[in-house]
Simulated scan of single mutants.
Amino acid sequence: MGAPITQDDLDIVRDCERALLTGAVRGDRLSAGLLLHPEYREFGKSGRVWDKESVLDLMEDTSELVQIRAEDLETVPLGDDVVLVTYDSVTPQARAHRSSLWVRESGRWQVRFHQGTAVPAA
């Protein structure tokens, strides 16, 4: 069994999730790569399935265009060493519901799974 989740853990995961939305982290393959689990998988709002390398390539290519805001971000412990993050991502072009599953391995938090679901325009 892992360690119980503390408020400090929830704050760290929240900060890490927000960091992945910034151009500074997205444009730095090493920094972004440290936050993504080796077996990272994403179901994008487009329906495309991403792995760690493909999402790092995308982040690197589009980091200068990033204008992503997280609204209503919540963190929920799901068990020892596992946190669910949910929020809406908002860009000038679109809004999406987002969820990320973060795991703590070897003392470090990494996102293991992420999903985006497009929100239809009003």
Rank of each mutant, 00 (worst) to 15 (best):
S89V: 13
Q93P: 02
V13Q: 03
K52W: 04
G107K: 02
R69N: 14
T117Q: 03
A19S: 11
G116H: 04
F43H: 12
D28V: 03
L101R: 03
R48I: 12
Q110G: 02
L34E: 15
S63Y: 10
T117V: 10
E17I: 05
V49H: 12
S63V: 04
C16N: 14
I5R: 00
G27E: 03
G116S: 01
Q110T: 04
S106Y: 12
R18K: 14
V25F: 06
G23T: 08
S31Y: 04
A3G: 10
K52G: 01
S54D: 08
P4S: 13
M59H: 15
A3T: 13
P4R: 13
G79H: 09
G27P: 04
D9T: 06
T62I: 11
T62D: 09
L65R: 14
R14V: 06
L36Y: 08
H37V: 04
V103M: 11
D9W: 00
D61T: 12
F113W: 14
T91D: 07
T75V: 15
V82W: 07
T22K: 00
R98H: 04
D61N: 14
V13M: 03
D72K: 10
P92V: 01
R18V: 09
F113H: 15
Q7H: 13
E17K: 03
G79R: 05
V90I: 14
P4M: 11
R48Q: 13
K45W: 09
V82P: 03
G107M: 00
R14N: 09
A118V: 09
V49T: 11
D88S: 11
A118Q: 08
E74M: 13
G2I: 01
E105S: 12
D11H: 11
L30A: 15
V66K: 04
L35M: 11
G44K: 01
R95A: 05
P4W: 07
A96K: 00
L36Q: 02
T86D: 00
L73E: 03
E74A: 12
E42D: 07
G116D: 05
G33F: 01
R69A: 13
H114A: 09
D61I: 09
S46K: 05
L20W: 03
Q7E: 15
R98A: 02
V55S: 13
V111I: 15
G44P: 00
L65S: 14
T6A: 05
W109H: 04
D80T: 11
A32V: 08
W109A: 02
A19K: 04
L20R: 11
